[in-house]
Amino acid sequence: MAVQAQPVTDASPSPWTAVARAVALLTAVVSVLLTAFAWPSVRSSMHDVPIAVAGPAPAVRQLSVALDERLPDAFDITEVADTATAEQLIRNRDVYGAIDVSSGAPQVILASAGSAAVAQTLNGIATALSQAQSQGVSSPSGVRDLVPLPADDPRGAGLAAAALPLVMGGLLAAFLLTRLVLGATRRVVGALAFAVTGGLAVGGILQFWLGSLTGSYWANTGAVALTIAATSLSILGLEALLGSAGLGLGAAIMMLLGNPLSGTATAPEMLPGWSGTLGQLLPPGASGGLLRSTAFFDGHGATHSVIVLATWLTLGILLCLAGGMLRRRPAADRVTTTGQPAQATV
């Protein structure tokens, strides 16, 4: 006669050391999250922000020295001879703005679409110059926004807010595809298809509903699609090679490094130390720069961002294919040793 075992109703409580480990882990996680998201904002400042100063050489040199004394190391100044050259540098995204002294009274030329934060700083300089000029015989300085933000989103809030959803979209795509789709090739195709549909949807919302983007809808859609593809495929590739640990590593790279260091809300040059440069080498940072170029600057200044995103996309595809080959090899070994066919998906 079989005796049925009684189910265990009272499990032994965990040891206090397990509680201590859990608390320590949670403390470390929240500290890392706070550091990742708060440190770039708290330590944000102007350093080596590229601007132009236009006008006669003596006046340009005098103003450059005055700016360096007032805001040490804040600007990387390009000295040009005339207003047209300064405006061309702004439109090409070589500089964020310019101070023009070619007509006598200084005029500040902005490109708020390039960075609202830098434009605000240059506005402050214009106010200081105006106050100084008003005490002399020259007329006060003026401000001209050469490349303004859209009237429907004058603070650029939509573009800044889009950075996190794009990262989350790529991460969610990688997570769902690894859970719902078998085969490296099918996952790559799924990620690329989602990049297209997601680009169409996000580009349409930002441009036609929120009014946060101008320019060519198709160029903006392409920028969003390239971002989603680069993010999702790079994480898929890490998962194909490292398993679940790859998903975690990819999420950490995109969420804890890429998003806070993207500089989309301010400017990469305003982030502390080396973080702005690092952020532009990751998909979230490259995405912000590319969207600004396609939406407001007719594609000027997009080359670096396209190269970065294309590199991540290509790397992701190669990792996916390499991971698929590694997974098929054990299946082939089992066929050799057991003589039984093993199914492998591609």
Rank of each mutant, 00 (worst) to 15 (best):
G156M: 10
R187T: 02
S115K: 01
A174W: 07
R155I: 05
D82P: 05
F175R: 08
L182N: 14
T78I: 02
P106T: 00
T83Y: 03
Q131G: 11
G114Y: 03
L164V: 10
A161I: 09
N123Q: 10
L171A: 15
T83H: 13
A74Y: 00
R70E: 13
R70W: 05
A132C: 00
L171F: 14
A163M: 11
R187S: 03
G156I: 10
A117V: 12
L166C: 06
L159V: 11
V147S: 05
I90D: 01
E79G: 00
D152L: 12
D152P: 01
G169L: 14
N123T: 07
V101R: 02
A117Y: 12
I125G: 02
L159T: 07
L110N: 09
M168T: 14
I99Y: 03
V167P: 06
A81N: 06
Q120K: 13
A74M: 02
T127I: 11
A128T: 07
R93S: 09
D82R: 08
L110T: 06
P72I: 01
L180P: 02
P106D: 04
S139T: 13
L129C: 04
L182V: 11
A161Q: 14
V167I: 13
A111S: 11
A74I: 00
D153P: 08
S115M: 04
P150R: 02
V189G: 01
T127C: 03
E79L: 06
E69H: 08
I109P: 02
P150V: 06
I109V: 14
I125A: 14
E79F: 01
P165V: 03
V101T: 10
L166T: 12
Q120E: 15
V95L: 04
V167D: 06
A157N: 15
S112T: 05
A98V: 02
R186Y: 09
L159I: 12
G169H: 06
D94N: 12
F175D: 08
G183Q: 00
L182Y: 11
N92K: 13
E79T: 07
R155T: 14
V189E: 09
E79R: 11
E87R: 13
T121E: 14
E87F: 01
P106N: 01
P106H: 00
F175G: 03
V101C: 08
E79K: 06
A162D: 14
P72R: 03
S139E: 15
A116R: 15
A117E: 12
T185M: 10
D94P: 00
A111K: 01
L164K: 10
D82N: 13
A98Y: 03
D153A: 09
G97T: 02
V108I: 04
A74C: 03
Y96G: 00
D100C: 04
P148E: 08
D76W: 01
G183E: 04
V143G: 07
T83N: 10
A160L: 13
A113W: 08
D153Q: 06
D76M: 09
S141V: 04
P72M: 02
A111H: 05
P148A: 10
T178D: 10
L149K: 04
L149H: 09
D152Q: 14
S103F: 05
A184M: 07
A132M: 04
Q88F: 02
L180I: 12
A174V: 03
L164A: 12
A126G: 12
P148N: 09
S103G: 13
L182A: 15
D73A: 15
A113S: 04
L71V: 08
A126I: 01
L149W: 04
